[in-house]
Simulated scan of single mutants.
Amino acid sequence: MDNLSVNEGKRKSLMEKVNQIPGIGLVMAMGSGISLATGGLTVKLVDSLSGIEIAVARSLVTCVLVFIFILFQRESFMPPSGERFPLLMRSVTGCIALIFSFSAIKLIPLGDSQSIVFSSPVFVSILGCLILKEPCGIVQIFSVFMAIGGIFLISRPSFIFPSNDVTLVSTSSNRTLGLTFALCSCLGASFTFICMRRLPKTPASVVVFWYSTFCVVAGTIVSFTNGTFTLPETLHDYGLLLLCGLTGLFGQGILTLALKIENAGPVSLARSIEIVMAFIYQVTILGESVSIYSGIGAIVLGIGVITVGLHKWYLSDPQQFNSIFCCKKKSNTTVNTFSNQT
């Protein structure tokens, strides 16, 4: 017992030191976005496997590492009795989101897929209104319209945009399928966030463990059923799969720490760098051009996500929000100075 209390004291003192670093929560959130975008890049670079097999490989790496972490922390693998069904639903929706996301990356440009999947916070706010009976106002409605407009520009339906104005990396049928996968991933991620709100007592490591385990089992079954299961062909692919698993775990881990240090609003704003990095990787490493419609659509989507983030920030800490964006402190100082002079 004494050793456990000493270890807990050391962890608390370490977190207190980390919290004292200015802007460390936002830096962690940006690091999470860069890490997850890098994971998406590895999916694109592995040619010998489909999105399902890559999702299984990433989940396997995460499962093993988190299993070791839980044993080291001496935590229970079982969630509280009242949170087992929400944990199951979180695992199911998270698995759907991951598999569809990786499958979409295989079919459409990296920037397009990541932009659509990243718009999930917008739909989370709407699902929160419909399922959790949270208040719904003009901010939620505006962000949804922006998200729909951004997705419309990225998808570029052929009945509006002529085919000669669209630069496609894959065939038209593959692009339609990839966009559908990206939308399904976005909706799956949205339901995942709703399920996470029902897991306040379950440790994050336990949630990630069971989610990863479910992805390994379900993904393997689906892969065998489709007859597409195969092993990587080269050591290079094995290395990319390991990197995919490590970047995914690292991105989720530092995002969890960022949310413990900083409010959800600023964190979601800082994480928007994931879209920027996806387009940078697409141009510099993958050598794929970016359509002007995709660029504008990503900006419109980003405005919707940023609106939701700013709204969350205002609701969680209105005093800090006003001091930064409304210059409230400066105006008070000016008034005091003027009154003293008169």
Rank of each mutant, 00 (worst) to 15 (best):
G94K: 04
S339N: 13
C136W: 05
S323R: 14
F85A: 09
A204R: 11
S268D: 10
S212I: 04
F325K: 08
G295A: 14
S81F: 09
K17D: 02
G51A: 06
R90F: 07
T333D: 15
G297M: 02
C186K: 02
L41R: 06
S163T: 05
A182P: 04
T256L: 09
S120V: 01
A258G: 15
Y281L: 11
L235V: 12
P162Q: 02
I299D: 10
I306C: 12
L179K: 02
D47L: 01
Q252H: 13
I99Q: 04
I126A: 14
Q73P: 03
A29S: 08
K312Q: 15
Q319L: 08
F77H: 10
L107N: 07
F224Y: 15
C129R: 05
P121K: 05
T228P: 03
V122E: 07
L259N: 11
A204D: 11
V124H: 04
G248H: 05
V46W: 04
T171V: 13
F102V: 04
I285W: 07
V43N: 10
E262S: 10
F209L: 08
P203F: 11
Q252T: 03
C129P: 00
T192D: 08
I154R: 00
L257S: 04
S143G: 09
L14E: 10
L242S: 13
F191T: 01
T171N: 15
V283N: 09
T167G: 00
S103C: 13
I108T: 08
A278H: 09
L36K: 05
Q341F: 13
L168T: 14
Q319D: 11
V61K: 07
I160E: 05
A147C: 12
K106N: 09
A189T: 06
S59R: 02
S120E: 14
G9P: 03
F72R: 13
V216W: 03
I108N: 02
L60W: 04
K330G: 12
T230F: 11
V64Y: 04
T220S: 15
L249T: 03
A57H: 05
F191K: 05
T192Q: 14
F321M: 00
S294F: 11
